[in-house]
């Protein structure tokens, strides 16, 4: 019996709707990068160990490398490309990452930004400890952690003022 090894799915990525055929074994990460050419989301370990591929799936940060695309039917996905405003205005968090040098090579940055965005959505005024606990799943080999934590604090501070 020839089994069906691909499906057509409908997903919304950064507010844009896509209808795409996907092989069952394609991960959401590969769907984004290969099929939708959204290469902002990075593949680092591809095994769920590093957090670089973090995206928001219906608002919740998940690892796109461990999410099969076929399971995303009807889902709303936000990637790093969807964090800035429609006119290109950077989010306060994105600007804070620049101001605080919250990156070095920048390869983990998309995942860091998506996790940090979710953190501030859940908890607009996190303590340093809460930041550390929330971000512990986003590894950075260059060691930009203190800039990242500073950036999250700066963005939270701005959120308070706004």
């Amino acid at each position: 019996m020839q089994s069906i090894q691909r499906q057509e799915i409908q997903v919304t990525v950064n507010k844009e709707a896509y209808r795409v055929p996907v092989p069952n074994r394609r991960t959401l990460l590969d769907l984004l990068r290969q099929d939708l050419s959204l290469t902002g989301t990075k593949k680092v370990c591809d095994m769920g160990h590093c957090g670089a591929c973090t995206v928001l799936l219906d608002g919740v940060p998940v690892l796109s490398c461990l999410t099969l695309a076929v399971t995303c039917e009807g889902a709303q996905i936000t990637t790093v490309e969807g964090l800035a405003g429609p006119d290109g205005t950077l989010s306060p968090l994105q600007q804070a990452f620049i101001d605080c040098d919250g990156f070095q090579c920048g390869f983990c940055t998309p995942g860091q930004l998506v996790s940090a965005t979710a953190l501030l959505n859940d908890n607009p005024a996190p303590s340093r400890e809460e930041i550390t606990a929330y971000m512990a799943g986003n590894l950075c080999r260059c060691g930009a952690y203190s800039g990242i934590a500073d950036a999250i604090e700066q963005a939270a501070e701005q959120g308070k003022e706004a």
Binding site: G51, T67, S115, G137, N138
Partner: peptide
């Protein structure tokens, strides 16, 4: 356990 992302999944 694990990380926030893995705990969400």
């Amino acid at each position: 356990a694990a990380t926030p992302q893995l705990r969400n999944m």
